[in-house]
């Protein structure tokens, strides 16, 4: 790189038709400093990813150890790898029921959120109507509601409807955050579809529902994917409300995990194994949608 600097000085020298004296008078003698681009990026990423993965690794590490090994020896990897912790979980129905519960309400919530958000997002992206802006803003404010504020009123509301400890209760409660989010994301994708497509379809004699399902939805398929991903994500990770609204029959896996552990004393191995098992669904989902994540974020709408 240093050779580049000297050569560029030569370039500015006598060869140029602008007299060198004039250039000096203006002070245009300093060539741009040629910098070697800093390739510290990989270093930053390595440190950051290590930071992200270490605690997870530690959990995985513990999940393959016996309790004796966890508490008595300190080792960076299991000395006597065991599957006991996982066997405990897979032989106890209350564990895998927790999984089924979590998945059930998460999927229900995702389906409900997307189903109601689709027409609403279409309305916001295509039409003006009385109070549209206020309505949109009000929807978004719900994303700002602290879950802790809603925990108790939700409990009373769903008790009144006899929905406590059902999957539907959790699914509906999570709509509070996910519906505004889904409307927001979908509206962004829909606004990117030219309105001429709608008009052409109507001229071709499509009815609204048929147009929407046959033509419009395929066009914003990736948007639906992104919205579904975020609904899934927030519903899967939220626990305060999910735990408040369930007692046994619909209890999420993550809640069962803490309860079981506190009941059985400090069974660290099982706790770790249960933790690992709750990470896996999320990891799988990310892997399948990895190409859409950047796209969804690119819209700047989360």
């Amino acid at each position: 790189m240093s050779t580049g600097v000297t050569k560029s000085i030569n370039l500015n020298g006598p060869a140029g038709t602008l007299p060198a004296s004039a250039a000096k008078a203006h002070g245009f003698v300093a060539p741009p400093k040629v910098r070697k681009p800093l390739h510290l990026g990989w270093l930053v990423m390595t440190i950051y990813l290590t930071f992200l993965l270490l605690p997870i690794y530690w959990l995985v590490n513990m999940s393959f150890k016996t309790n004796v090994e966890i508490t008595n020896t300190f080792s960076l990897w299991p000395n006597n790898p065991t599957l006991r912790n996982y066997t405990v979980i897979f032989t106890d129905p209350s564990w895998y029921n927790g999984y089924i519960n979590s998945i059930t309400y998460v999927v229900m919530n995702t389906v409900i959120s997307i189903a109601v958000a689709l027409p609403a997002a279409y309305a916001f992206s295509r039409y003006r109507f009385l109070g549209d802006k206020h309505l949109f803003f009000w929807l978004l404010t719900n994303r700002m509601a602290p879950p802790a504020v809603f925990a108790l009123p939700f409990f009373q509301l769903y008790s009144a409807f006899g929905l406590i400890d059902t999957h539907l209760a959790v699914a509906l409660a999570h709509c509070l955050f996910n519906v505004p989010l889904a409307v927001w994301i979908l509206e962004g994708f829909m606004s990117g579809v030219p309105r001429e497509i709608d008009e052409t379809a109507y001229i071709d004699g499509y009815s609204f529902p048929r147009f929407f399902v046959k033509i419009f939805m395929p066009l914003i398929a990736s948007g639906i994917g992104v919205a579904a991903f975020f609904c899934f994500m927030f519903s899967w990770v939220e626990l305060l409300i999910a735990r408040t609204l369930t007692t046994t029959a619909a209890k999420p896996i993550a809640a069962i995990m803490t309860r079981t552990v506190s009941a059985s004393g400090l069974d660290w191995g099982v706790l770790a194994a249960a933790g690992v098992l709750t990470i896996i669904p999320g990891a799988l989902v990310i892997w399948f949608v990895r190409n859409y994540i950047a796209k969804g974020f690119a819209l700047g709408r989360v």
Partner: peptide
Amino acid sequence: ICLVLMALPLLIPWNVVGTIWQVF
């Protein structure tokens, strides 16, 4: 690889996040 690994903590249930750090 970066996208997937970075998104990983975002998809862990929040109490498990707590548990991970409680243990860690």
